[in-house]
Design a protein around this nucleic acid. Structure first.
Length: 847
RNA sequence: GCGGGCGUGGCGAAAUGGUAGACGCAUGGGACUUAAACUCCCUUGGGGGCAACCCCGUACCGGUUCGAGUCCGGUCGCCCGCACCA
């Protein structure tokens, strides 16, 4: 018998599948379709274990569904625009286009040997003009539909390089190349009106039953619906044109605890003050330092500036509050102005303490004490005693307090209850080259007008340079020059490109008709949409998935998707990372020196013999060198081993640690299965021992593996396959029974280790490809046991057990329990207080 | 700072509120072999007992329940996201 040799058999089966075209998706109205999609990769140049894990999961689902008779769509493409390509051009020279397409070719070559059931005929990259041209067409349709508009927004500005920085390029508040402190700067930018869909995007989350609860919760919090009061303070001593100050609060019940009002440094009144007062200008400039991320703003030291302006308290016009400009107030949320209640908001408390403002408690806990040295921030459902309330009962919960306060304010004629969302509109403009050009033209006479559709795609010019910071499109000698689509006069193109999230917000729809000269084709979209199963990383829980949900709605409004695709992903699965230990030694000055896993043996660096420090289980990253190249694993063990390993052990939603020992073990197991299959194929003895037991075990395996795959519990499916392997290895059944069991096993293993499964299938005389064979069905009659062992607990502790027929009546069981030796002894002649019999599960005797 | 998640043997883990540790790795012992590799068999949460068996144990503290790894409240630790990374 020959040894199991994946390096020979794997390419053989891949070629055979390819020749037969088994993975080419075809619109087949006679069959039910199934669309499985893994989040497409960024073409960095190398695939990593995270890709292997993600695509293996998708492949398991795709192959399983094929066997179940579905017409399966399982496509692959490239999320190909983005900054790394420009960075590479700046650092190493070359062109982003060459770099990207070169990487795509490399990565495709690395993916092929893994044997994924992908339909490569549908492949595209988002940087293909055929793709981004259709995206531009949709942009124009969305502009026509009023879903896109322009407004000012802040960006990170590097004052030395004179360029816009991505958040990622801001390190500790400084530009990553220049090292200069970053400033916030306003630019006119394009926005998608995602906020118009806020309520709908929130409400529709309830219907996404097959999405992880945590993702739905994160999205709900991100959309951030709140009910509050919006009202106007009368201003005293404000600049010309500012009579009132609109504020929004979710805690109007704390109005009697107000001790100051605050406005954002970007508030129109702050801007008016800034122009007039150099001290205020200096303060506002201070506030504008640092990056634009919410994290940077929230964690920055709280700064305030007393403007000298006062507001009158709406409940008592003689009561005046100071107006501060404060760096923690966001112009994007609410009205960009707040009132501060230090007694019941921790941030206001710290602000008031810092600037010596009064702290007036409005309520106190019904139970327990008012906390000292911090704000008392109750839960919404917590009952409160209002000591300075102005509406409703003295004791109510926070939620009730808010509702009655809103009603009271409306009654008294100031302010009204409003619902607001935290969700902001999606700014899509990027001042970068390697992205989809925004297809608009700036005309002196006509203003900003969309390009004509027949002129699409607006293609990126190839002759650009990256020797300086900034957007090469801006300094291209001729690219901007064009004629106005309206009046025909000379005009200039927009040089901003689109956020790469736009590219990934509709690629799933494009896969249904990837070569069409419209964004989608109705019959194809109608047949293939929605994505039945989407699989990717949890890091996309909010942005990518929310943007895609918005885009599906926008595409529907503009006629590019059918109504049923309003939620594009029926089911979502978020997988964990592949981690690895980090190995490091220290140089003379104590700085860490990282080592690749293959340089280590027995906790020592092979070359030098130095003992390494080990940091357990960290995300694989090049800089820490804790990476394992899938290509090396495939070379050493074959693709099936890599696939088997990433599916074993850890549940797919959790991180899995790659270990050399684990890979070896996976390889050994597959070789063992191969040996057992060969033994069976070679044996012709007809001795018949326990065929029934083996058959039963095989059907139990069918049942459990099927349920595990359906439930995305691949690790349990693998465990079950280990069990049935052991059962089969030890079985004394006749060869025909073993052959049948082994064929079932090959089918069950097929989705995970397709090459080995095809080998075994062929070896044992299976017809056609195992991937094309119908998924086995478990016979329910073979799944039940005649008797069960009931554990007997006494006061909740297991003390004995009882073997009874499966469906024995409850009172029969009780009789047997009371006769049990351990129970008799424990009762010592008395009667139990309670006797709990859970049929088929457990008995508890309470004494 | 805000939002979300996770925490079970030496390790990865399993367990519709019902016998905690299935399955795998790694130990330790044995078989095969001149020897090794490969392979096969047995053992393995901690402690106590000659044994039957008993006690402890799911990050920590508390609660609900006949019964809690699982549900509720709090604490600690780690991880992810925070709108221009993809």
């Amino acid at each position: 018998m020959s040894r199991y040799a994946p390096s020979e058999t794997e390419p053989k089966w891949q070629a055979a599948w390819g020749k037969a075209g088994v993975f080419t998706a075809r619109r087949d109205p006679a069959r039910e379709k199934y669309y499985v999609l893994e989040m497409f990769p960024y073409p960095s140049g190398r695939i990593h274990m995270g890709h292997v894990r993600n695509y293996t999961m998708g492949d398991v689902v795709a192959r399983y569904k094929m066997s179940c008779g579905f017409s399966v769509l399982h496509p692959m493409g490239w999320d190909a625009f983005g900054m790394p390509a420009e960075n590479a051009a700046m650092e190493k020279g070359g062109h982003p286009k060459e770099w990207t397409y070169g990487n795509i070719a490399d990565m495709k070559e690395q993916m092929r040997p893994l044997g994924f059931s992908l339909d490569w005929t549908r492949e595209f990259a988002t940087c293909d003009p055929e793709y981004y041209g259709q995206q531009q067409a949709m942009f124009i349709d969305m502009l026509d539909a009023g879903l896109v508009y322009r407004k000012n927004a802040v960006v990170n500005w590097d004052p030395v390089d004179m360029t816009v920085l991505a958040n990622e390029q801001v390190i500790d508040g400084k530009g990553w190349r220049s090292g200069a402190p970053v400033e916030r700067k306003e630019l006119t930018q394009w926005f998608f009106k995602i906020s118009e869909f806020a309520g709908e995007l929130l409400d529709a989350l309830d219907g996404l039953k097959d999405w992880p609860e945590k993702v739905r919760l994160m999205q709900a919090n991100w959309i951030g619906k709140s009910r509050g009061l919006q009202f106007a303070f009368d201003l005293v001593g404000a600049p010309e044109g500012f009579d009132t100050l609109e504020v929004y609060t979710t805690r109007p019940d704390t109005l009697m605890g107000a001790s100051f009002a605050g406005i954002s440094p970007d508030h129109p009144m702050a801007k008016a003050l800034e122009a007039a007062d150099p001290k205020i200008a200096a303060f506002v400039a201070e506030c504008r330092k640092g990056g634009t991320t919410e994290e940077a703003i929230e964690t920055a030291e709280k700064l305030g500036f007393d403007t000298g302006i006062r507001v009158r308290h709406p409940l008592d016009p003689t009561w005046e509050l100071p107006v501060y400009i404060a760096n923690f107030i966001l112009m994007d949320y609410g009205t960009g102005a707040i009132f501060g209640c230090p007694a019941h908001d921790q941030r206001d408390f710290e602000f008031a303490t810092k600037y010596g403002l009064t702290i007036n408690p409005v309520f106190e806990p019904v139970e327990g004490d008012y906390p000292a040295g911090e704000a008392y921030v109750p839960m919404k459902s917590e009952p409160l005693r209002y000591v300075r309330g102005f509406a409703g009962a003295a004791t109510q919960t926070g939620d009730e307090g808010v509702a009655t306060a809103i009603a009271e304010c409306e009654k008294r004629g100031f302010g009204q209850g409003v619902t607001k969302f935290r969700l902001r509109d999606w700014g899509l403009s990027r001042q970068r080259y390697w992205g989809c050009p925004i297809p608009v033209v700036h005309c002196e006479a006509c203003g900003v007008v969309p390009e004509k559709k027949e002129n699409l795609p607006v293609q990126l010019p190839d002759d650009v340079t990256f020797d300086r910071p900034g957007n090469p499109l801006d300094r291209h000698p001729t690219w901007r020059e064009c004629t106005c689509p309206c009046c025909g006069a000379p005009a200039k193109r927009e040089t901003d490109t689109m956020d790469t999230f736009v590219d990934s917000s509709w690629y799933y729809a494009r896969f249904t008709s990837p070569r069409a000269n419209t964004p989608t084709v109705p019959e194809d979209a109608d047949y293939w949409m929605n994505v039945d199963q989407y699989i990717g990383g949890i890091e996309h829980a909010i942005l990518h998935l929310l943007y895609s949900r918005f885009f599906a709605r926008a595409m529907q409004k503009t006629g590019h998707l059918p109504a049923k695709a309003i939620e594009p992903f029926n089911a979502l699965f978020t997988q964990g990372m592949v981690t690895h230990e980090i190995y490091l030694t220290r140089d003379a000055s104590g700085r860490p020196v990282y080592h690749l896993p293959e340089e280590i043996e027995d906790g020592k660096v092979k070359a030098t013999g130095e003992t390494v420090e080990i940091i357990p289980s960290a995300k694989m990253s090049k800089s820490k060198k804790n990476v394992v190249d899938p290509m090396n694993i495939i070379a050493d063990f074959g693709a099936d081993t890599a696939r088997w390993f990433v599916m074993s052990d850890s549940p797919p939603e959790r991180d899995v640690e790659w270990t050399a020992a684990g890979a070896e073990a996976a390889s050994k197991h597959l070789a063992r299965v191969w040996r057992i299959a060969n033994d069976i194929a070679a044996s012709d003895d007809a001795e018949n021992g326990e065929d029934a037991a083996l058959l039963k075990a095989a059907h139990k395996a069918i049942d459990e593996v099927t349920r595990s795959i359906d439930g995305f519990a691949f690790n349990k499916a693998v465990a079950k396959l280990y069990e049935i392997t052991n059962t089969l290895a030890k079985s004394k059944a006749g060869s025909a029974a073993k052959r049948d069991a082994m064929k079932i096993m090959a089918q069950l293993m097929g989705p995970m280790v397709p090459h080995l499964a095809e080998d075994i299938w062929a070896l044992l005389g299976g017809e056609g490809f195992v991937v094309s064979a119908a998924w086995p069905k478990a016979d329910p009659a073979l799944l039940t046991e005649d008797s069960v062992v009931l554990p007997i607990q006494i006061n909740g502790k297991r003390r004995s057990e009882l073997s009874v027929p499966k469906d024995m009546a409850k009172d029969e069981v009780e009789k047997l329990v009371l006769a049990d030796e351990a129970v008799v002894k424990a009762l010592a002649g008395g009667q139990p207080k309670k006797l709990i019999v859970v049929p088929g599960r457990i008995v508890n005797v309470v004494i």
